[in-house]
Amino acid sequence: MSGVNKWFGELHVLQDIDLEIARGEVVVVIGPSGSGKSTLCRTINRLESIEKGEIAIDGELLPAEGKQLARLRSDVGMVFQSFNLFAHKTILQNVTLGPIKVRGKSKAEAEKQARTLLDRVGVIAQSDKYPAQLSGGQQQRVAIARALAMDPKVMLFDEPTSALDPEMISEVLDVMVGLARDGMTMIVVTHEMGFARKAANRVVFMDGGRIVETTEPETFFNNPQSDRAQNFLSKILNH
Protein backbone atom coordinates (compact mmCIF):
# COMPACT_ATOMS: atom_id res chain seq x y z
CA MET A 1 0.00 0.00 0.00
CA SER A 2 1.26 3.47 -0.75
CA GLY A 3 0.21 6.98 0.13
CA VAL A 4 -2.92 5.75 1.86
CA ASN A 5 -5.06 8.38 3.56
CA LYS A 6 -8.39 8.02 5.23
CA TRP A 7 -10.68 10.38 7.09
CA PHE A 8 -13.65 9.74 9.35
CA GLY A 9 -15.29 13.12 8.91
CA GLU A 10 -12.76 15.56 10.40
CA LEU A 11 -10.61 12.82 11.86
CA HIS A 12 -7.58 11.94 9.73
CA VAL A 13 -7.25 8.29 10.83
CA LEU A 14 -4.67 7.12 8.30
CA GLN A 15 -2.00 9.57 7.20
CA ASP A 16 0.29 8.77 4.26
CA ILE A 17 0.65 5.11 5.04
CA ASP A 18 3.29 3.30 2.97
CA LEU A 19 3.71 -0.36 3.69
CA GLU A 20 5.01 -3.16 1.53
CA ILE A 21 4.69 -6.72 2.69
CA ALA A 22 6.49 -9.57 1.00
CA ARG A 23 5.00 -13.00 0.49
CA GLY A 24 5.48 -15.14 3.57
CA GLU A 25 6.29 -12.18 5.75
CA VAL A 26 4.76 -11.70 9.19
CA VAL A 27 4.23 -8.09 10.25
CA VAL A 28 3.08 -7.14 13.71
CA VAL A 29 1.32 -3.80 14.05
CA ILE A 30 1.49 -2.25 17.48
CA GLY A 31 0.46 1.10 18.89
CA PRO A 32 -1.80 2.89 21.34
CA SER A 33 -5.55 2.53 21.21
CA GLY A 34 -7.12 4.77 18.59
CA SER A 35 -3.95 5.02 16.52
CA GLY A 36 -5.67 3.51 13.46
CA LYS A 37 -4.49 -0.12 13.59
CA SER A 38 -7.95 -1.62 13.08
CA THR A 39 -8.74 0.87 10.36
CA LEU A 40 -5.50 -0.06 8.59
CA CYS A 41 -6.46 -3.74 8.62
CA ARG A 42 -9.97 -3.00 7.46
CA THR A 43 -8.82 -0.95 4.48
CA ILE A 44 -6.75 -3.88 3.24
CA ASN A 45 -9.87 -5.90 2.42
CA ARG A 46 -11.87 -2.74 1.91
CA LEU A 47 -14.27 -3.11 4.78
CA GLU A 48 -13.34 0.59 4.92
CA SER A 49 -12.83 2.66 1.80
CA ILE A 50 -9.87 5.04 1.45
CA GLU A 51 -9.88 8.61 0.18
CA LYS A 52 -6.36 8.74 -1.23
CA GLY A 53 -3.56 6.36 -2.15
CA GLU A 54 -3.58 2.81 -3.43
CA ILE A 55 -3.62 -0.70 -2.08
CA ALA A 56 -2.64 -3.67 -4.20
CA ILE A 57 -2.50 -7.37 -3.43
CA ASP A 58 -0.30 -9.54 -5.61
CA GLY A 59 0.07 -6.56 -7.93
CA GLU A 60 -3.69 -6.20 -8.30
CA LEU A 61 -5.34 -2.94 -7.18
CA LEU A 62 -8.37 -3.26 -4.91
CA PRO A 63 -11.57 -3.03 -6.95
CA ALA A 64 -14.21 -0.56 -5.80
CA GLU A 65 -17.34 -2.64 -5.37
CA GLY A 66 -19.34 -5.62 -6.52
CA LYS A 67 -18.33 -9.13 -7.53
CA GLN A 68 -14.65 -8.37 -8.03
CA LEU A 69 -14.38 -6.90 -4.57
CA ALA A 70 -16.06 -9.97 -3.09
CA ARG A 71 -13.54 -12.15 -4.91
CA LEU A 72 -10.65 -10.09 -3.64
CA ARG A 73 -11.96 -10.29 -0.09
CA SER A 74 -12.08 -14.05 -0.36
CA ASP A 75 -8.30 -13.97 -0.91
CA VAL A 76 -7.75 -11.98 2.27
CA GLY A 77 -8.50 -13.85 5.47
CA MET A 78 -9.62 -11.77 8.42
CA VAL A 79 -9.77 -12.67 12.09
CA PHE A 80 -11.58 -10.24 14.37
CA GLN A 81 -11.20 -9.44 18.04
CA SER A 82 -14.78 -10.56 18.68
CA PHE A 83 -14.60 -13.82 16.65
CA ASN A 84 -17.84 -13.04 14.75
CA LEU A 85 -18.77 -16.66 14.10
CA PHE A 86 -22.15 -17.22 12.46
CA ALA A 87 -24.35 -17.92 15.48
CA HIS A 88 -27.01 -19.96 13.67
CA LYS A 89 -24.58 -22.33 11.98
CA THR A 90 -22.61 -25.22 13.41
CA ILE A 91 -18.84 -25.02 13.65
CA LEU A 92 -18.49 -27.17 10.55
CA GLN A 93 -20.99 -25.02 8.62
CA ASN A 94 -19.15 -21.88 9.69
CA VAL A 95 -16.05 -23.20 7.97
CA THR A 96 -17.73 -24.64 4.85
CA LEU A 97 -19.97 -21.66 4.02
CA GLY A 98 -17.31 -19.68 2.16
CA PRO A 99 -15.81 -22.59 0.19
CA ILE A 100 -19.30 -23.71 -0.93
CA LYS A 101 -20.80 -20.29 -1.74
CA VAL A 102 -17.74 -18.42 -2.93
CA ARG A 103 -15.40 -21.10 -4.26
CA GLY A 104 -18.17 -23.32 -5.60
CA LYS A 105 -16.86 -26.44 -3.87
CA SER A 106 -19.12 -29.42 -3.33
CA LYS A 107 -20.43 -29.98 0.18
CA ALA A 108 -18.43 -33.18 0.60
CA GLU A 109 -15.21 -31.58 -0.58
CA ALA A 110 -15.73 -28.52 1.63
CA GLU A 111 -16.47 -30.67 4.68
CA LYS A 112 -13.40 -32.78 4.15
CA GLN A 113 -11.22 -29.69 3.98
CA ALA A 114 -13.02 -28.13 6.97
CA ARG A 115 -12.39 -31.22 9.09
CA THR A 116 -8.69 -31.11 8.25
CA LEU A 117 -8.54 -27.44 9.27
CA LEU A 118 -10.58 -27.91 12.44
CA ASP A 119 -8.27 -30.73 13.36
CA ARG A 120 -5.25 -28.53 12.71
CA VAL A 121 -6.55 -25.80 15.06
CA GLY A 122 -7.60 -28.41 17.61
CA VAL A 123 -11.39 -28.08 17.69
CA ILE A 124 -12.43 -31.05 15.55
CA ALA A 125 -14.39 -32.50 18.49
CA GLN A 126 -16.67 -29.45 18.47
CA SER A 127 -17.65 -29.70 14.78
CA ASP A 128 -21.37 -30.18 15.32
CA LYS A 129 -21.81 -27.65 18.12
CA TYR A 130 -22.95 -24.06 17.79
CA PRO A 131 -20.56 -21.16 18.46
CA ALA A 132 -22.27 -20.17 21.71
CA GLN A 133 -21.37 -23.60 23.14
CA LEU A 134 -17.63 -23.00 22.71
CA SER A 135 -15.11 -21.10 24.83
CA GLY A 136 -13.64 -17.88 23.48
CA GLY A 137 -10.35 -19.53 22.64
CA GLN A 138 -12.10 -22.31 20.74
CA GLN A 139 -14.27 -19.81 18.88
CA GLN A 140 -11.25 -17.82 17.81
CA ARG A 141 -9.54 -20.95 16.53
CA VAL A 142 -12.67 -21.76 14.53
CA ALA A 143 -12.56 -18.23 13.14
CA ILE A 144 -8.99 -18.87 12.01
CA ALA A 145 -10.04 -22.16 10.37
CA ARG A 146 -12.91 -20.35 8.65
CA ALA A 147 -10.49 -17.82 7.18
CA LEU A 148 -7.98 -20.52 6.18
CA ALA A 149 -10.68 -22.47 4.36
CA MET A 150 -10.61 -19.80 1.64
CA ASP A 151 -6.90 -20.47 0.94
CA PRO A 152 -6.13 -16.79 1.47
CA LYS A 153 -3.03 -15.08 0.11
CA VAL A 154 -2.74 -13.04 3.27
CA MET A 155 -4.29 -13.18 6.73
CA LEU A 156 -5.23 -10.15 8.82
CA PHE A 157 -5.57 -10.48 12.58
CA ASP A 158 -7.07 -7.58 14.52
CA GLU A 159 -6.24 -8.06 18.20
CA PRO A 160 -7.21 -11.74 18.02
CA THR A 161 -6.47 -12.41 21.67
CA SER A 162 -7.57 -9.26 23.44
CA ALA A 163 -11.11 -10.52 24.08
CA LEU A 164 -9.80 -13.76 25.58
CA ASP A 165 -9.25 -14.90 29.14
CA PRO A 166 -5.50 -15.17 29.83
CA GLU A 167 -5.46 -18.96 29.92
CA MET A 168 -6.85 -19.13 26.39
CA ILE A 169 -4.47 -16.70 24.79
CA SER A 170 -1.67 -19.16 24.23
CA GLU A 171 -3.84 -21.75 22.48
CA VAL A 172 -4.72 -19.13 19.86
CA LEU A 173 -1.17 -17.77 19.62
CA ASP A 174 0.20 -21.28 19.14
CA VAL A 175 -2.03 -21.74 16.11
CA MET A 176 -0.84 -18.40 14.76
CA VAL A 177 2.81 -19.21 15.30
CA GLY A 178 2.21 -22.48 13.45
CA LEU A 179 0.72 -20.57 10.53
CA ALA A 180 3.67 -18.21 10.43
CA ARG A 181 6.09 -21.16 10.37
CA ASP A 182 4.15 -22.66 7.47
CA GLY A 183 4.85 -19.53 5.45
CA MET A 184 1.54 -17.69 5.63
CA THR A 185 1.70 -13.97 4.92
CA MET A 186 0.29 -12.30 8.01
CA ILE A 187 -0.52 -8.85 9.34
CA VAL A 188 -1.19 -9.06 13.04
CA VAL A 189 -2.38 -6.28 15.30
CA THR A 190 -1.42 -7.41 18.77
CA HIS A 191 0.31 -6.36 21.95
CA GLU A 192 1.54 -9.88 22.58
CA MET A 193 5.28 -9.39 22.59
CA GLY A 194 5.90 -13.10 22.88
CA PHE A 195 4.23 -13.61 19.53
CA ALA A 196 6.04 -10.71 17.94
CA ARG A 197 9.42 -12.06 19.12
CA LYS A 198 8.69 -15.62 18.07
CA ALA A 199 7.01 -15.09 14.72
CA ALA A 200 7.34 -11.55 13.37
CA ASN A 201 9.78 -10.44 10.72
CA ARG A 202 8.95 -6.79 11.32
CA VAL A 203 7.19 -4.64 13.86
CA VAL A 204 5.30 -1.59 12.67
CA PHE A 205 4.63 0.99 15.35
CA MET A 206 1.66 3.28 14.71
CA ASP A 207 0.62 6.42 16.52
CA GLY A 208 -1.91 9.08 15.58
CA GLY A 209 -2.67 7.56 12.19
CA ARG A 210 0.97 7.39 11.08
CA ILE A 211 3.57 4.67 10.89
CA VAL A 212 6.17 6.01 13.29
CA GLU A 213 8.75 3.28 12.98
CA THR A 214 9.33 -0.07 11.33
CA THR A 215 12.00 -2.36 12.78
CA GLU A 216 12.88 -5.90 13.66
CA PRO A 217 11.13 -7.21 16.77
CA GLU A 218 14.25 -7.42 18.93
CA THR A 219 15.36 -3.90 18.05
CA PHE A 220 11.88 -2.57 18.63
CA PHE A 221 11.43 -4.04 22.08
CA ASN A 222 14.97 -3.56 23.35
CA ASN A 223 15.94 -0.36 21.68
CA PRO A 224 13.04 1.57 20.11
CA GLN A 225 14.15 4.49 17.97
CA SER A 226 11.36 7.00 18.47
CA ASP A 227 10.35 8.71 21.70
CA ARG A 228 6.75 7.78 21.14
CA ALA A 229 7.56 4.09 20.87
CA GLN A 230 9.71 4.28 24.02
CA ASN A 231 6.92 6.01 25.83
CA PHE A 232 4.36 3.47 24.65
CA LEU A 233 6.54 0.49 25.54
CA SER A 234 7.27 1.78 29.01
CA LYS A 235 3.51 2.00 29.56
CA ILE A 236 2.68 -1.52 28.44
CA LEU A 237 5.72 -3.01 30.16
CA ASN A 238 4.71 -1.52 33.49
CA HIS A 239 1.47 -3.47 33.47
Binding site: L47, R73, F80, F86
Partner: peptide, 9 residues
Amino acid sequence: EASRAIGLT
Protein backbone atom coordinates in the same frame (compact mmCIF):
# COMPACT_ATOMS: atom_id res chain seq x y z
CA GLU B 1 -18.66 -8.11 8.25
CA ALA B 2 -17.19 -11.56 8.74
CA SER B 3 -19.38 -12.90 5.95
CA ARG B 4 -18.26 -10.17 3.59
CA ALA B 5 -14.67 -10.80 4.64
CA ILE B 6 -14.84 -14.42 3.42
CA GLY B 7 -16.05 -13.08 0.08
CA LEU B 8 -19.82 -13.40 0.20
CA THR B 9 -21.60 -10.73 -1.83
